Amino acid sequence: MLENWHDVNGLIGNSLIYFDRNDQQWHQSWIDTNGSSLALAGGFIGGVLTLSGTKPNTGELHEIQWRPLKLGRVEQIWRMSLDNGATWTPRFRGIYYAVDQQN
Rank of each mutant, 00 (worst) to 15 (best):
D32F: 00
I12N: 12
T54I: 15
Y97N: 09
A41K: 15
R73F: 04
H27L: 09
R21T: 12
F19D: 03
Q102G: 09
E60C: 02
I64M: 04
Y18R: 12
P90H: 08
L40C: 08
E63G: 01
V48M: 05
G42S: 02
G13Y: 02
T33P: 00
I12L: 10
L71E: 15
E3N: 15
K70Y: 05
L2Y: 03
V74M: 11
A39R: 06
T58R: 08
V48F: 01
S36I: 08
L69M: 15
Q28M: 06
E60T: 07
D100K: 06
T33Q: 12
K70W: 03
R73Y: 02
K55M: 15
F19S: 06
Q24H: 12
H6L: 10
D7M: 11
Q65K: 12
L40M: 10
W88T: 02
L38R: 03
W88Y: 01
D100M: 05
Q101R: 08
Q65R: 13
A98S: 11
S52L: 01
Q28D: 06
G59V: 05
R67I: 05
S15H: 09
W30L: 05
L49N: 06
Q76A: 08
N84W: 00
M1F: 07
D20R: 12
H62T: 13
T87W: 08
M1C: 10
I64Y: 00
G94A: 15
G59S: 02
L49Q: 03
N84M: 05
G35Y: 02
T58Q: 06
F44T: 07
I12A: 14
E63C: 14
G47D: 08
T87F: 09
F92N: 08
L71P: 00
Q25W: 01
N103L: 14
Q76Y: 02
E75F: 02
N9I: 08
Q101L: 14
A86F: 08
N84E: 13
F19T: 04
K70M: 08
N14Y: 11
T89H: 13
N14C: 10
R21I: 10
A39P: 00
L11W: 00
Q28E: 12
E3M: 12
R79L: 01
L49G: 03
T54P: 00
Y18N: 07
L51Q: 02
N57I: 06
G42T: 06
Q102K: 13
S36W: 00
G47Y: 10
N84R: 12
E60N: 13
P68T: 10
L49D: 06
K55Y: 01
Q101W: 01
F92L: 15
S37H: 03
W5V: 11
N103G: 07
S81N: 06
T50P: 00
L49E: 10
A41T: 12
R91I: 04
T87G: 04
Q28A: 02
I12R: 15
S29T: 12
L61I: 06
S37K: 10
F19E: 02
D100C: 05
G13W: 07
A86E: 05
Q65M: 12
H62I: 15
S37G: 05
T50M: 14
Y96K: 06
M1W: 07
